[in-house]
Design a protein around this nucleic acid. Structure first.
Lengths: 152, 152
DNA sequence: GTTATCCGGACTACCACAGTCCTGATTGTT
DNA sequence: AACAATCAGGACTGTGGTAGTCCGGATAAC
């Protein structure tokens, strides 16, 4: 299923929100704006800060600020920051230390072309691309909106 | 991390092995040849049979046979057969039933372009491509095993 | 000094996957 | 006809990672 962590999705939402405002924004503020629970938002932001996607400012009146423009952030960067390096299988690159029986370990550099293809595909899609898909559905008041099955 | 299930990797190994022989092959035989535990091989083969990638023949002298050539099997098909439909997030396609608050569900059709890009990339890589990366490493130890089923 | 905020962990509950096993159904062989 | 070999389709359990929360400490504005 190629599962992608929910945190990564949250990260995209948070980053887009971060891009929409001027100054720094606080975790609680973003949480309120996005509907994502505050502790989770905080966790995501900390992760993104560690990945150099956002900058943080401590203390009162502190908050987070986007480092680059949305168009300069490929999805692969977000995934790498939140979920770690993009790799389909356990032992792909450097972690080829203990692959059971070294000789016939089924996993080899075999998935490398696949990894590369995915990495390449994800590098070409930026958050700006995802933002446009987000806009029509977003911005709608949380209230009302019985069932706006927009996507698809 | 875009984790891919181990079963999918096993599936590739099994399929490549299946392509290397002429007649039908049994689960125990493939298990011995690949080093993958027998029950796991059986499970993978059953899954692959359900996905129409291999055909099965019951009874004594039964076994499995590859349906298409390796070059005609894109990786995406294997992943879809083993891990289910390729989708990065939980609610992408039909499962848009209960996305928490319907109004501001962060996940939308937003990841669709990403999904499409990955799907497209995976469709262009076939098992034949992965086989070449496998060959040099394979063929080594554990050979010797005379798993030659009785008559052949 | 007080307050608001980020930092960096530790921590728990849960769910999907990995792997095994069991009971049938099918088919060739004796 | 009985037997043996094989696949079919489950159920089942242990483990690992993810999701989500929370706490004490550091930093900076007022």
């Amino acid at each position: 299923m190629l599962r992608l962590s929910k945190l990564t999705d949250y990260a995209v939402v948070v980053l887009v929100r971060l891009a929409g405002m001027e100054g720094v924004q606080t975790s609680p503020g973003i949480a309120a704006a996005t509907g994502i629970p505050e502790p989770t938002v905080a966790k995501v932001l900390k992760t993104l800060a560690a990945g150099d996607l956002v900058s943080s400012q401590r203390g009162a009146k502190g908050g987070y600020r986007l480092n680059r423009d949305l168009a300069a952030i490929p999805v692969s960067d977000v995934i790498a920051a939140v979920d770690g390096p993009i790799a389909l299988t356990a032992c792909v690159d450097g972690s080829a230390s203990e692959c059971e029986s070294q000789g016939l370990c089924p996993m080899r550099g075999r998935w490398d072309p696949v990894n590369d293809a995915i990495q390449s595909a994800l590098s070409r899609i930026t958050l700006a691309d995802m933002q446009v898909a987000l806009l029509p559905a977003f911005r709608t008041p949380v209230a009302q909106v019985p069932f706006q099955s927009a996507a698809e």
